[in-house]
Amino acid sequence: MSIVSPRERAKAERRDALLAAAARLYAERGFERVSLDDLGSAVGVSGPAVYRHFAGKQAVLAALLVDASAGLLDGARAVLDERADGPSSIPDARSALAALVAFHVAFAVENPDVIRVQSADLESLAETDRHTVRGLQRQYVELWVDVLEALHPDAPRPLLRTRAHAAFGLMNSTPHSARGSARETRALLATMAESALTAPA
Rank of each mutant, 00 (worst) to 15 (best):
A120I: 04
V101A: 08
F107R: 11
E110T: 11
A106V: 00
F107I: 07
A108D: 07
G135H: 08
A96W: 03
P156Q: 12
A178C: 10
G135N: 07
D154F: 08
I115L: 15
S173E: 04
L170D: 03
L159F: 14
I115C: 04
L122V: 06
A178G: 06
P153S: 11
A166G: 08
L148Y: 03
R130Y: 04
A120W: 04
L159K: 12
L188Y: 08
D121C: 11
R130A: 13
A126Y: 12
R157S: 05
L151F: 06
E127L: 14
E123C: 09
T132M: 12
A182D: 15
A93V: 03
S124F: 02
V105T: 07
V141E: 08
E142H: 13
A93H: 04
L148A: 08
L159S: 14
A99S: 09
R163I: 04
V117D: 01
E142S: 07
A182I: 04
S95T: 11
S95M: 07
T132P: 03
H104V: 10
A167H: 00
H104F: 08
E110H: 09
A120D: 11
L143F: 06
A182W: 05
A187L: 12
P175F: 05
E149W: 06
N172V: 00
L159Q: 14
L151D: 07
N172Y: 09
L170A: 06
H152N: 07
A126E: 15
D113Y: 05
G135V: 01
A155W: 05
G180N: 10
D154W: 10
A155P: 03
E149M: 10
V147F: 02
T162N: 09
G135W: 09
A150V: 05
L160S: 02
E123Q: 11
L143G: 06
L170P: 00
R94K: 15
L125M: 04
V147G: 00
P112G: 06
V133N: 01
L159A: 15
H165Y: 12
A93R: 01
R94I: 02
R183D: 15
H176R: 13
S95R: 15
T174M: 15
A120R: 15
R163V: 02
R186K: 14
V114L: 11
H152M: 08
R157T: 03
T162A: 15
V114W: 00
F107H: 07
H176F: 13
I115N: 00
A187E: 12
M171L: 13
P156V: 14
L159M: 14
Q137A: 08
V101M: 03
I115H: 02
N172H: 07
P158C: 11
Q139C: 08
E110K: 12
E142P: 00
T174C: 06
D113F: 01
A155V: 15
V147C: 01
T162W: 12
E127T: 13
D146F: 01
H165G: 01
